[in-house]
Amino acid sequence: MSYTPHQDYRAVDGNGQGTFPTTSPIKMKGVILNRFSDMLNPTPGFDPYMGGQWQQFIQFVDEGDFGGTALYMGQNIGKNVGNHPAGSYTDAEWLAELDRLNHDPITGRAFRSGDLVEVRARAPGLFFRGKTNINEQHQKTTLADFDVVLLQPNYMLPAPQTITLADVKDSVDEFIFDQSRATGAEHYQGSFVRFEDVQFTAGTWGPNQSMTITDGAGRTLPVLLGFGSGFAEYPSPTGSFDIVGVFDQEDKISTDGWKGGYRLWVMDYDGDQFVLYRYVKPDFDRDGDVDETDLDHFEACASAPGIEQTDPSCLNADFDGDSDVDQSDFGVLQRCFSGSDGLPDPTCDR
């Protein structure tokens, strides 16, 4: 089976309705963009209606393709077909599904942003509010499962594509819709993008909240804030700033077709800039885990309490900012240590 290009899977008609036939199994390839728990909360029962939810975006890698695709799972899928709770996942079943989706079935390695993966979808998904996304078509059966398989670990997290609000909004602040997807908002669906020199104009700052950005020329765009810890730890930036995230769509108004509802989904903020994936401090080599390689670097940099560490290459090991690299800093590394196949708790260095 050949790979389905993202641009084909996300094709739409003149009303924004998806046109890709979701009737036969497909196979897709892409690089993982986001940490699943930064986008939706997977905790069993978290959402009053859908329970735990899981979502990751993968972005194109093959020349000639463009855009990206959402992979989605919901715990209480039986509610959407009138078969709840029998057709939904129990808490134990849901946790087992999360474990399956978050680990390569061959090596057991936990997936992370920047991994190149293959998605094998037995039920090739559904169209929902403006986008076709891979899911189980609300069926709790292995016959509808999709599998994520590792092709290359730490392949490369793509650089964000810098665009302007004028690329997706017109002069009267309406979304630019192009059925061909060569231009306008549709072109950037599922992509990692950057908007420069924008400001917040409205909204609530915090995890799982929403804001609005403006370019100062009358154009605006909704921003969804994910579950990244930085939204609780730091105040929102003021004045002009650059912002990065996944460009997405969920159009809740269907009377004019599916030509609106685009937004930027932002994963985290480190107090200085917005980030797609915040690496914990002891992940020195930025490969998503804290393992023996990171421990070796720390040990090479260790000084002692009150003994200043002046080597420029070791300043990143002074986690508490007291100028030495001592047991206090080692305690942070211990809390974050995951091994090469695991992922650290994203709050372990807080």
Rank of each mutant, 00 (worst) to 15 (best):
residue 248 D to W: 12
residue 105 P to F: 08
residue 32 I to G: 03
residue 62 D to T: 15
residue 115 D to V: 07
residue 27 K to R: 15
residue 267 M to F: 10
residue 84 H to A: 09
residue 37 S to H: 10
residue 282 P to I: 03
residue 164 T to M: 09
residue 113 S to I: 07
residue 255 T to F: 08
residue 246 V to D: 05
residue 283 D to Q: 08
residue 187 H to R: 14
residue 131 K to P: 05
residue 163 I to V: 14
residue 280 V to Y: 07
residue 13 D to E: 11
residue 7 Q to Y: 11
residue 343 L to E: 00
residue 77 I to R: 11
residue 78 G to Y: 03
residue 217 A to Y: 02
residue 151 L to T: 04
residue 134 I to G: 01
residue 12 V to P: 09
residue 307 I to Y: 07
residue 206 G to F: 01
residue 302 A to M: 11
residue 97 E to Y: 13
residue 145 D to W: 01
residue 43 T to F: 09
residue 297 H to P: 00
residue 217 A to N: 08
residue 206 G to V: 12
residue 32 I to N: 03
residue 207 P to Q: 11
residue 219 R to N: 01
residue 327 Q to W: 05
residue 345 D to I: 00
residue 323 S to A: 10
residue 349 D to Y: 00
residue 89 Y to D: 02
residue 93 E to N: 07
residue 309 Q to V: 06
residue 11 A to I: 08
residue 63 E to Q: 14
residue 163 I to F: 15
residue 204 T to D: 12
residue 192 F to N: 12
residue 84 H to L: 11
residue 341 D to S: 02
residue 204 T to Q: 06
residue 230 G to R: 07
residue 22 T to L: 12
residue 202 A to K: 02
residue 189 Q to M: 15
residue 97 E to N: 13
residue 117 V to I: 07
residue 259 K to P: 05
residue 72 Y to T: 05
residue 229 S to A: 13
residue 299 E to F: 05
residue 101 L to P: 13
residue 59 Q to G: 10
residue 293 T to L: 07
residue 136 E to R: 04
residue 346 P to L: 15
residue 314 C to Y: 02
residue 91 D to S: 10
residue 121 A to D: 01
residue 318 D to Y: 00
residue 73 M to D: 13
residue 143 L to T: 15
residue 53 Q to E: 15
residue 253 I to M: 12
residue 3 Y to L: 15
residue 147 D to M: 12
residue 178 D to R: 04
residue 290 V to S: 02
residue 281 K to E: 04
residue 227 F to P: 00
residue 112 R to S: 14
residue 30 G to W: 04
residue 340 S to T: 15
residue 335 R to M: 01
residue 227 F to D: 07
residue 295 L to N: 10
residue 116 L to H: 07
residue 39 M to A: 06
residue 319 F to M: 01
residue 248 D to N: 15
residue 170 D to Y: 08
residue 144 A to T: 00
residue 314 C to T: 09
residue 213 I to C: 07
residue 271 G to D: 10
residue 161 Q to N: 14
residue 235 P to C: 03
residue 266 V to W: 02
residue 132 T to C: 04
residue 267 M to W: 01
residue 130 G to Q: 09
residue 32 I to M: 14
residue 102 N to F: 14
residue 195 F to R: 05
residue 83 N to L: 15
residue 325 V to H: 02
residue 52 G to S: 06
residue 147 D to A: 05
residue 322 D to S: 07
residue 226 G to S: 09
residue 191 S to G: 09
residue 334 Q to R: 04
residue 303 S to L: 14
residue 27 K to I: 13
residue 238 T to Y: 01
residue 65 D to P: 08
residue 120 R to E: 05
residue 34 N to I: 06
residue 340 S to P: 12
residue 37 S to T: 08
residue 95 L to C: 07
residue 104 D to G: 07
residue 213 I to S: 02
residue 347 T to Q: 11
residue 190 G to V: 01
residue 223 V to K: 02
residue 175 F to W: 06
residue 293 T to D: 03
residue 115 D to A: 06
